[in-house]
Design a binder for these strands. Structure first.
Lengths: 128, 128
DNA sequence: ACTTGTTTACGAAGGGCTTCGTATTGACAC
DNA sequence: GTGTCAATACGAAGCCCTTCGTAAACAAGT
């Protein structure tokens, strides 16, 4: 049984496409093309989806003439990987350093702050 | 008076070099070359530093025969930009979403959690 | 069968990043 | 000056990402 290797991190353009697939669900090239924020040629989207299929980032249903693409990686795990990478590359491996940075960056609403606080409470007991 | 454009985001290899400069302070090519974690050719480091000089990421003191390089961008602002970019690309612009992701990812020590809590308290009053 | 419009397939260009080999320059000792 | 050693400068290769043009395949009508 062939064990598949984990798909690589999506590049920028690929991430934009994945985002569309995560929002819309299974989509055709045309769907994706029209949903993309910054306009790009139709065949560009097609090419990217072909490459992403090879990479294992999406799967393709070829039963119909017009192929239908699905995201093969979840938004959550992708985000997790991207965060991990950034933490490694720029924050010396410290997630907390990144958290502090992100919190300093941005205004947050009261609700959001409360959301974070809850997560914090939830992890209160952990030691390391 | 010529107004300089903001230097671009450092690439991966550039970030590794900047990290060395941030840790060591002003350094020669040789210094950087020896301090780098994953080994890479001497001239590779030299070339990168030359490019980074053009980009405005570092400055170069040529008064001595052996040039001395200094980081021209701070670690803090670089981190800020990198976080902003990731937030835009992968978190729909929501820093808080990234914070939650990062917190879920990683085990954090009690001290660290406390650190975050303090920052949270500090921003308690803010509305948006 | 032919035409028209849509879709996929393919190839290639352009640009950026990373790498390094080779050439040049400079300093210092002999 | 000549030789030697270390440093810088230059150029180019290899790879990946992004983009798109063009060709080929297909479907549906006329």
């Amino acid at each position: 049984m062939p064990k598949r290797k984990a798909p690589p991190r999506p590049t920028n353009a690929e991430l934009a496409i994945l985002t569309v697939l995560w929002r819309r669900g299974p989509s055709t090239v045309r769907d994706v093309h029209e949903a993309l924020r910054d306009p790009v040629g139709y065949t560009t989207v097609l090419k990217l989806l072909q490459i992403m299929t090879e990479k294992g980032l999406v799967t393709r249903d070829e039963r119909t003439r017009t192929h239908v693409y699905r995201a093969a990686v979840s938004e959550a795990t992708t985000r997790r990987h991207l965060v991990s990478d950034l933490v490694e590359r720029a924050f010396g491996g410290s997630s907390v350093a990144l958290v502090l940075q992100a919190l300093s960056n941005t205004p947050a609403s009261r609700d959001e702050l409360e959301q974070i606080r809850q997560l914090l409470d939830q992890r209160k007991g952990e030691t390391r």
